[in-house]
């Protein structure tokens, strides 16, 4: 194993990890704000990939422009899902919401299949298929675009959560919904917006998915399993934890890919998941929030 190849693997790993960060941040945000494991998160990623692909191949709209439509649309859909569906669950909410979001995932998967068949698709735009090199390390354009988009979105989300009034209310809700509502915070509104934000990040994340990976309707299952492993490692509900865990997993995956095999690169997510549950069941970056989950 040459050190050069290893360095290349680490660079690619960071690029991939950045994208995983965005995907996991949305998922873990949704978990944190309402204790809902959004099984449909990756289905929304794939849905967004399809929408961008359709806009590009059929309507000739640049995928980056299509974000101006998909991001707000996903936000609204997220708020609606929370208000009209999830908020109405009464008993055994954690498990029932798992079933409900599973149902959403399957419905999306089936609808995509009906509309655009089960064939593999990919978004191939002129500026995304090239690559450039720097100090002997090759940087594939699609991955760089993906990383930059993911980093910008993640940064925006992070600033919103850290520094806005909404972010304060949201963090209060995450920490203790009952206390937050006593302080006059409308927790249902906060949760609706939280779900909307989570899905809005999925709209960007989905475009990146489409730029980098081939996709078909059922691909979301493999992705959701991976991001789930990441958010457990990061501590369920912790956005920063998820981002760090995602970067770490991106690098590990990439290194395993060049040193061992693709099978092990896939497997490593679940080995890490198992290891986390054995040694630190509440994740490595989670802190107190995740204590009961």
């Amino acid at each position: 194993m040459s050190s050069h190849l290893l360095l290349q693997a680490v660079v690619l790993g960071v690029l991939t990890g950045g994208v995983y960060s965005l995907w996991s941040a949305g998922l873990t945000l949704i978990f944190g704000v309402m204790r809902v494991v959004n099984i449909a998160h990756a289905a929304f990623l794939v849905l967004s990939a399809y929408l961008s692909w359709f806009a590009y191949t059929e309507l000739g709209i640049d995928p980056l422009l299509s974000l101006f439509a998909t991001v707000p649309a996903f936000f609204v859909v997220g708020v609606l899902i929370q208000r009209l569906l999830l908020a109405r669950l009464r008993d055994h909410v954690t498990m029932m919401s798992v079933l409900l979001t599973t149902a959403l995932a399957i419905t999306i998967e089936g609808s995509l299949g009906m509309l655009w068949t089960g064939s593999h698709r990919g978004i191939e735009i002129s500026y995304s298929t090239s690559s450039f090199s720097l100090a002997g390390i090759s940087f594939p354009s699609d991955q760089v675009i993906g990383f930059v988009l993911a980093a910008l979105t993640f940064f925006a989300l992070f600033m919103l959560l850290r520094h806005s009034r909404y972010g304060k209310a949201l963090r209060a809700t995450i920490q203790n919904p009952d206390a937050a509502s006593l302080l006059g915070i409308k927790t249902t509104t906060i949760q609706g917006i939280g779900f909307g934000l989570g899905l809005a990040t999925a709209a960007v994340g989905g475009l990146i998915l489409g730029l980098i990976h081939p996709f078909f309707p059922a691909t979301h299952w493999a992705w959701i399993a991976r991001i789930m492993a990441i958010i457990v490692l990061g501590g369920l509900g912790s956005v920063t934890g998820a981002a760090l865990a995602a970067l770490l997993m991106g690098v590990i995956e990439s290194v395993v890919l060049v040193t061992l095999s693709p099978v092990w690169a896939g497997m490593i997510f679940y080995l890490v998941l198992a290891g986390t549950l054995v040694f630190r069941p509440h994740g490595f970056f989670g802190g107190r929030l995740a204590e009961r989950f």
Partner: peptide
């Protein structure tokens, strides 16, 4: 080892572990 959510996640991941194997 933990309650509720992790159980769902592990069972979901299990399918993909076995697929890879």
């Amino acid at each position: 080892r933990t309650r509720d959510a992790s159980f769902v996640i592990v069972t979901l991941a299990l399918v993909y572990i076995m697929l890879l194997l």
